[in-house]
Amino acid sequence: MLFALAALLALVGAGNDPDHAARLQVVAFCDLVIALITMVAPWRPSRPNAPALIGLAGFAVLGLSTWSFGGVAAGTGPFLVMLYAWSALHFPRWILLAYAVPATLAYLLPLIITGQSPLVLSSAAILMPVTLSVSLLIEAQARHLRDDRERLARVERWRSAMMNTLAHDVRSPLSGVQIVLDELREDATGVAADMLDVALRQAARIHRLADALLDVQRIDSSGRLTLDRREYPALELVQEALGYLRPDEPIRVEIDPSARLYVDKERFEQILINFLTNALRYGRPPVEVRIARDGDVDRVEVRDHGPGVPEELRDTLFGQFAVGGDQGVGLGLWIVRQLARAHGGEALAESRDPGVAMVATFPARQPS
């Protein structure tokens, strides 16, 4: 684009300066050739510095341009700086230093050939050091940004591998534990049966945590989740989800028995259980579950009567790996928001007096 712009300006100059039109047309042709070569050349990632050769050709054309304008360097200086800035963004500093000699010659030789005064020639003593200094600053900043990006990429790869490994390593032995617990539960009675029920619920919870880790990886890698949405009785969905919690938890359910939800059942349970566990952990009883239709949206609300969301957490409440000291909300609410958005809805927190209501919205299924 830089050389295409230079070609366009050379053509404009040819129209405004008939005496030098032929020379300027040659300059425009050279700029266009360089632009085309830059676009179609098979640059190889194994030779990242090869495009620096374009800079050398550019300096030669800049010198030709100055000569074509009769020694007027008003257009050469800015393009020289732009060419150096482009180089600083893409190449190491040794190339910028190596450019110093051809760039200086490209600027000075046309001035000498056209017989410019020593005062004009001395402008190189200001332009070239300033141009080189600015380009070195740009190169340093660009290098730091590239290093930071590569470091973040390494951290992300490590995090992704760790989460995948952890999730899979948890799921495999946990399946064996659940099978054993199920076998024991069939013949258990009394207190032993109650204890095995608790163990089975907690094993199911760990299994869901492993699934949540895999969900994070799927969301990060593809940006979307595949859902199996169907229409379910809302009250039945909530009661099944409550089965994963202790039966004596202070939870009140206020749902119209005729209400229905169009959701992915497993994802909905993840959302609701996350809301409920947070409300029970950080809020105060009673915890209330409500589902209501608002236009073409179903609102699932879990409200507690605690102190509400701390001020320092409000901006990051649904963020990935959000923390806030002892009241850290962790990863769960970020997953909740991604699951709600995958349904076409949203997850948010609404203040109540007292407490807070965690809300997930789901598009209502329209009648066919």
Rank of each mutant, 00 (worst) to 15 (best):
T104M: 10
T114W: 12
L108H: 14
I113E: 12
Q116P: 10
P92N: 03
W86S: 13
Y99H: 09
G115T: 06
S87R: 06
S87L: 04
H90W: 10
Y107P: 08
A98R: 00
W86K: 12
P102S: 08
T114I: 12
A103P: 06
H90N: 14
I112M: 15
W86R: 15
G115M: 11
Y107T: 06
T104A: 10
A100L: 15
F91N: 04
L97F: 09
I95N: 00
L108R: 14
L108I: 15
I112Q: 09
Q116D: 11
L108P: 08
A88E: 01
T114L: 08
I113M: 14
I113L: 11
T104L: 07
I112L: 15
I113W: 14
L96G: 03
S87A: 11
P110Q: 11
Y107C: 04
A103G: 07
P110Y: 06
A100P: 15
P102L: 06
A100S: 09
P110T: 04
V101F: 11
I113P: 12
A100D: 06
Y99W: 13
H90T: 05
P92A: 07
L111K: 10
P92L: 07
S87G: 12
L89C: 12
I95P: 01
I113C: 07
P102V: 04
L96N: 03
L111S: 11
I95S: 00
T104P: 02
L109C: 10
Y99D: 05
A106S: 13
V101L: 10
I95K: 01
A88L: 00
P102E: 06
L89R: 01
P110A: 02
T114G: 14
S87E: 01
L97G: 02
L111G: 13
S87W: 00
Q116V: 12
W94L: 04
H90V: 04
A106G: 07
V101P: 10
